[in-house]
Design a protein around this nucleic acid. Structure first.
Lengths: 391, 391
DNA sequence: TACTCTTTGTTTAAACAACAAACAAAGCCT
DNA sequence: AGGCTTTGTTTGTTGTTTAAACAAAGAGTA
């Protein structure tokens, strides 16, 4: 049982001071005291410890406001570095970030579709090693590696199922832990994307939102009260598989009429193939359709509109279920924003009860959301034993 | 900003001690010390204060285990009383409970359908006053009134919309506050039901579950990490209005093919009306159908089965979205459990990916869930300034 | 320049909650 | 009767926040 003692009090206040510096630097000890309500003496003593731990530094004297000049403090975001990997179906993207989520280095590797698991593991190791080589000198070095996987993961770092990779149960954390002696965090690609947008993108100012990652499939990350909801056993947000057509076609998940059969890249490409103008072509992919849309192809524009409508139908379901402040659309479909945005909003206006005010947004960090979020999971874990919240 | 100080530590520990006594009484100070890890001296001092506040009492000496006999403590559940009201469409049920949720007194009032708001308010006042008259003498008296309303409420205690009552925006809290000088808490009927089941029913051992209240409409309460999720602005769980048929009939909410059009009492009665055997009858209601089912009417049994299937389809959506440990079916449809249970489970087995293990349960407190949950909201508020949690 | 006032940050002493250890109380066992 | 065990209180220590005093360093003004 978690009882209270003096140690806890200190931890809470130190956490508050650190968070304040992270969010509002540059600022002085006096500023912190005023903002937090903590006594000046308390702030001084806690800041001294944070400086000892290399998490905070002094930049020098600031502007006087009629008295002694303050000593300005900053958050030492270079105290350590995190690695985040977006493990896609046909690519791998790794980013190296500092403790504030700024990208220091990035590297992308292409993957042949259907690459076997052994080969993916090897490439992943190489990618991580390469990224590690680009870490600057720092007190804490690399504080961990986070990986976003397009599939279902549990809280122990196992992948339970990743159909688009052809994986069943996979102990990816175990594999990596053997090679790298640092914390490894595995999570779902949509959760990571949601977290990335929460910290560094469209979700920065939102406490409650749903991030929907629409690509080949549809995944989602649920942010409630500023933190990610992972569900009972770490599986959740499989919203691509809710039924929007009770007697529709069977999905590979076993259910019928799943949303993702109507509103994903897989649905889009299938419909495109049926267009008279494209019937013969074998090279249909999202990029081609974007080209055609740019050129003003009416069939394609109409198709995008239809897909947008189905996305809107799913969004109405999400809004009715969670009443979030916003739904953020991310992953590949953020590329076709301009052709689906109107249809999504139109559908929502038609179907959603007026009392709800859910805004539709698009991912701000684009293809980086997932890698950034994965890196952020590591940073969160690094700070977790320093940060405490009370309610 | 919420900083830490000695006062906070004390509050945390006092809260732990009180919770421990509530959950495990009768027990001694030494027991508490052992269970919580708090020092014996600390426990003694905190228990002394709780006794001063009349929340805890001593029953007398317990069994010796080879030394001095312990003084056994109990939670004084009679220190105050709470009133919970289930404001239904054609009835009002009030319960008077002690601080542990035990019902001391209850009273139900029938309502004519379409009763106007003024009349409902008057009846509600009378019901509350009558309930108050049955309160035993106690240190804190009546600590508040909680009301569960079949509609959308916000966190300020306003009803925004209650279609089945014919209400638009209604300041019910304001009305009651004028007459009763105690805390008034207004919440959605499904949220209250969920909370009632969480504390005193099928949800007691579950940290994550979805309570679906299926009656005329379908509402839902979402329990995440042992606490109720209310959504961005206190509106959430309008799951009855997610689409399960993208191009189905239009619902009064504006959306199309809403789940509640296929799986609620309203759907059931409409289908029943179309049965050849019932075409001429004007007195179709749930109770009649139950009678017929008991008598073995094949048409009715088949109809129940069909409705069960649609309930199952919605449950699959819920499971895919939240991955809860269980889905608890409550309200009127808990009455027809034996005729729909099999169809629900069958549908889920067919449609839900095997990796998920969501159990289907039925409400344990039956028609009391909502009133009990409403009363519990009041108790929670009463303790909220005493109880603190840290993470 | 000299002086006062303001602001910043540190030092000092007081308050207080948890804690360990000693102690008192009240039982059990032989 | 005496030793042992368990319970619960008392006593003194530790560690943290805090208010108040203080020191440092600048601004403003005559």
């Amino acid at each position: 049982m978690k009882t209270g003692d003096l140690n806890l009090v200190k931890k809470i206040n130190k956490s508050i001071v650190l968070t304040t510096i992270q969010n509002m630097a540059p600022l002085s000890r006096a500023n912190i005291s005023e903002i937090t309500g903590l006594n000046k003496a308390t702030v001084s003593s806690l800041v001294a410890e944070l400086i000892d731990e290399a998490l905070v530094g002094e930049t020098g004297p600031g502007e006087s406001s009629g008295g002694r000049r303050p000593v300005m403090l900053y958050f030492n975001k270079k105290a350590g570095f995190s690695i985040g990997v977006d493990l896609g179906v046909n690519y791998m993207l790794a980013v190296l970030t500092d403790l504030s989520g700024t990208i220091i280095y990035e590297k992308q590797t292409e993957l042949e579709p259907q690459t076997n698991q052994e080969a993916i593991f090897t490439k992943l190791s190489l990618l991580i090693k390469d990224t590690m080589d680009h870490v600057p000198e720092s007190p804490y070095g690399i504080i961990g590696v986070g990986i976003g996987v397009p599939g279902i993961t549990n809280n122990e770092g196992d992948v339970l199922l990743a159909p688009n990779l052809g994986w069943g149960f996979t102990d990816i954390k175990g594999y990596l832990a053997k090679q790298f002696d640092i914390p490894i965090i595995i999570d779902n690609e949509a959760n990571a994307g949601a977290y990335g947008e929460k910290l560094y993108g469209s979700g920065k100012t939102l406490a409650n939102f749903i991030y929907t990652s629409i690509g080949i499939g549809i995944g989602s990350g649920i942010v409630i009260d500023n933190s990610l909801f992972r569900g009972a056993t770490g599986i959740s947000g499989e919203m691509g598989h809710f039924t929007i057509n009770a007697h529709g076609p069977t999905c590979r998940c076993g259910n019928k009429g799943c949303w993702e059969l109507y509103a994903s890249e897989q649905a889009l490409l299938k419909e495109a193939q049926n267009l008279p103008s494209l019937k013969e072509r074998k090279d249909i992919n999202l990029e081609l359709l974007i080209q055609l849309a740019e050129a003003g192809d009416q069939d394609i524009l109409q198709l995008f509109d239809l897909i947008g409508e189905y996305i809107g139908i799913g969004f109405v379901n999400i809004a009715n279920t969670f009443n979030p402040q916003a739904i953020i659309l991310g992953n590949r479909f953020s590329l076709i924003k301009k052709w689906i945005f109107e249809a999504i909003n139109r559908t929502i206006a038609q179907r959603l009860s007026v009392s709800q005010e859910t805004e539709i947004k698009f991912s701000e960090r684009g293809i980086y959301s997932c890698a950034l979020g994965s890196a952020a999971f590591v940073i969160e874990a690094f700070f977790s034993h320093r940060k405490v919240t009370v309610e």
